[in-house]
């Protein structure tokens, strides 16, 4: 398989936090272009750390990471910002700028290609504003651009976050438990957008998830982490109560098809 078919290559990555805690322990994996990879594991198993290491919100202590053949680890300054701009990320807590309008939040996805003066004075070019409106339309919030971000519901806020990431025109999408703080009924409203991006536009998605039904519906491949090590790798169809216990430990139960850890 040629190098260009690999979206993310993680080689022997170890991340140690003061404590010391080994959040990732000599982890190696590959994510192919166009995959919808779901990462599962208990809180503290290293899911978040893995995602944050991929776009260098967290620096790994050891090891190397490549994105589409370009090395992420060791990148600095403009190079690092350019690489980060090609990776969209959404978070469990949405992380919108609450006091800004929805529109400004989406526009902030364009910061990496906006001049310092324009960005500090918040005067984005009409072109970018049109693009931001298009991104908002895609997540079904075209009419909410003028609202303050914290006036929206949780599900809507997460869709704004998706629009902000789309504004980056990313090749890769990271999602750190994107629906964990949403009502179960609203989860698909966010996941569906990730699915469309993945199936129709071939975007590679890496997503940390907890719900068994979401995993089986959206994932094309599944990995399980435990204490920062890879303990499971396989197709979502092969994922059952037995493998579930293998990853989450003996105490965990699959409750009526839904498991919230």
């Amino acid at each position: 398989m040629s190098e260009t078919n690999i979206a993310i290559r993680v080689e022997h990555v170890t991340t140690i936090f003061p404590g010391p805690v080994r959040a990732l322990d000599d982890l190696s994996l590959e994510v192919k272009r166009g995959e919808f990879l779901v990462v599962i594991g208990l809180s503290g198993s290293g899911k978040s750390t893995l995602l944050r290491c991929i776009n260098r919100l967290q620096d790994p202590t050891e090891g190397r990471i490549w994105i589409f053949g370009e090395e992420m680890t060791g990148a600095k300054g403009n190079q690092l910002r350019k690489l980060r701009a090609s990776i969209g990320m959404i978070f469990q807590q949405f992380n919108l700028v609450k006091r800004h309008s929805v529109m400004t939040n989406v526009l902030s996805g364009a910061l990496s290609r906006t001049s310092l003066f324009r960005s500090l004075t918040m005067r984005f070019s009409p072109d970018e504003v049109r693009r931001a409106q298009a991104c908002l339309d895609r997540v079904g919030l075209g009419d909410r651009g003028g609202s303050r971000a914290d006036a929206l519901s949780g599900g809507q806020q997460q869709r704004v976050a998706v629009a902000r990431a789309l504004m980056q025109d990313p090749k890769l999408f990271l999602a750190d438990e994107p629906v964990a703080s949403l009502d179960p009924a609203l989860r698909h409203s966010v996941m569906r957008h990730l699915e469309v991006l993945n199936r129709e536009e071939g975007l590679t998605v890496v997503c940390a998830l907890h719900d068994v039904d979401l995993i089986q519906r959206y994932a094309t491949r599944l990995i399980g982490l435990r204490d920062g090590r890879l303990v499971y790798e396989g197709e979502p169809q092969g994922f059952n109560a037995h493998t579930f216990k293998e990853i989450y430990g003996e105490e965990a139960e699959v409750a009526s098809g839904l498991a919230w850890i």
Binding site: F91, K98, L111
Partner: peptide, 21 residues
Amino acid sequence: TGPVDAITATGGSMLQVMRYG
């Protein structure tokens, strides 16, 4: 730190992160 992370993740520079995050 959430918005700071988010703006950093979009590829924003240090000053942009300050301004928006």
